[in-house]
């Protein structure tokens, strides 16, 4: 009896220890980087160019924003369309299975493979060269599974009674989707977009091989550009400046934290909009 108690105490201690390791690892990384990064995080660093003695990251911020916008503009409509087809139209069978298999596989492919593909296909064969467009096209395929799956979940949450109500009024299937189903799932679509933004901002390998690493202000989407993550990689890899690297890393972490906050808000809204009717 006593032996069992000791054993249980040890087991419990191990579980607590593991949870502690997880949280401690996070706290260590986040605090260490933010603390070191804040020292260098001033308006001059954020809002100046990266040339002529200045080491600002404004061009990288802009490149990141452009790549994010372009990728979302490409991936969101396609992903939402695909999710609508899968949830509203597709009947169980080979086609559904094929699309499922493709999205699962796309979700599992490492980003460096996306980079390789983007390099050979968009950069070389389609002759988009190293450009924000090549990067965004590559990334939009990469985030497609995220958009599809998240939107699918949101669509499945829309009560059948909404669809019935609309159809019974003589609306067609597509009118029902456009008028009732999709609007009800908007917070879910928003979640999908925010999650994708997080992945795009954090991506390095795929962008590095497709969008290039020029530190100029990008003038058009055919220009090459360097995103923040790539910038951090170059700074650290080439040992250019650890101070700047810290500051860039801090910005990335803060961005991710904000994105997580936004995701939780959007997801919360989705939940609320369907529960409030049961009162």
């Amino acid at each position: 009896m006593k032996k069992r108690k000791i054993k249980e105490t040890i087991q419990k201690a191990v579980i607590w220890l593991c949870a502690f390791i997880t949280v401690a690892a996070l706290a260590w990384i986040v605090i260490y980087i933010i603390a070191n990064g804040l020292a260098h995080l001033n308006p001059d660093f954020i809002f100046s160019e990266y040339k002529g003695g200045k080491n600002g990251i404004l061009p990288m911020i802009l490149s990141t924003v452009y790549v994010v916008l372009l990728s979302v503009i490409i991936a969101a409509p396609i992903g939402v369309g695909a999710a609508l087809y899968l949830v509203e139209y597709a009947k169980p069978g080979k086609l559904l299975y094929l699309v499922r298999f493709a999205t699962e596989t796309l979700a599992g492919i490492p980003s460096i493979i996306y980079g390789l593909f983007g390099f050979i296909f968009f950069v070389t064969i389609l002759k988009f060269s190293f450009s924000l467009l090549s990067g965004a096209l590559t990334l939009s395929i990469m985030v497609l599974p995220t958009v599809i799956r998240t939107t699918e979940e949101a669509l499945k949450c829309v009560p059948v009674s909404y669809r019935e109500g609309s159809l019974a009024l003589g609306a067609t299937k597509f009118q029902t989707i456009r008028g009732v189903v999709l609007p009800s799932a908007i917070p879910g679509v928003l979640t999908a977009v925010i999650l994708s933004i997080g992945r795009i901002v954090g991506e390095t390998a795929a962008v590095y091989l497709t969008a290039g690493m020029v530190t100029r202000f990008p003038g058009s989407m055919m220009d090459s550009g360097r995103t923040l993550s790539v910038h951090l990689y170059v700074l650290a890899k080439e040992g250019i400046s650890f101070e700047e690297a810290f500051a860039t890393a801090a910005i990335l972490i803060i961005t991710v934290a904000l994105i997580n906050l936004a995701t939780n808000k959007a997801a919360g809204r989705l939940k609320r909009s369907f529960t409030s009717q049961d009162n």
Partner: peptide, 19 residues
């Protein structure tokens, strides 16, 4: 703990590498 783990999931891999 849960939001902390979510944050851990979102941190770009290059930041881990830098750390």
């Amino acid at each position: 703990v849960r939001p902390a783990i979510e944050l851990l999931a979102g941190i770009p891999s290059v930041v881990y590498g830098f750390f």
